[in-house]
């Protein structure tokens, strides 16, 4: 749940007819909530990951390793001489980055998979790379004490 209060007195209702200011205020409050959530997670209370599906498998990546999740970019510029699994360069909120596919999944197959796209940053501050996935399932939260490696008996790693 994202509440709108963030320690400021700005009322969202007062910004209703000013969409840009409303968007800026929503972003500011979202960042505050996210920062507080990370601080809680760092205290060891919970571990939060972003779940996604790719090639029929379900994966989790730590939230702090995920810079952004966005739809597949409308414009992607091919990179001459790049590996076939590198889709190209795209523009996103924090600058141009390489859209890297997942080497284990053939490009021909990924073309007709889902269109969602998980954008992972942090591998290199100089060469941020995105990872194209079939579907982003959202956040999954685990109590620190409850984290176990491996799959559940039914094979679902998210349970």
């Amino acid at each position: 749940m994202t509440s709108t209060a963030s320690g400021t007195d700005t009322s969202l209702r007062s910004l209703r007819d000013r969409p840009f200011e409303l968007l800026k205020e929503l972003e500011k409050r979202s960042r505050t909530v996210a920062a507080n959530s990370v601080a809680e997670a760092e205290k060891g209370q919970e571990w939060v990951g972003v779940a996604f599906r790719m090639g029929g498998e379900t994966f989790l990546v730590a939230r702090e390793e995920t810079r952004e999740v966005l739809g597949y970019p409308a414009v992607v510029t091919r990179i001459p001489g790049a590996k076939s699994w590198v889709k190209g360069l795209a523009q996103c909120a924090w600058g141009a980055h390489a859209d890297a596919g997942f080497a284990a999944i053939p490009w021909e197959r990924r073309d007709h998979l889902g269109s969602q796209y998980a954008h992972r940053g942090g591998q290199s501050p100089d060469i941020p790379a995105g990872l194209m996935v079939d579907e982003v399932l959202g956040f999954r939260r685990f109590a620190e004490i409850g984290i176990q490696c491996g799959r559940a008996a039914d094979g679902d790693p998210l349970r």
Partner: peptide
Amino acid sequence: RKAKEMKPDLIFMDIVMP
């Protein structure tokens, strides 16, 4: 508790929460 304390103008509600 936070909703009662803060009385926010609007709530974005995620489905999956602890």
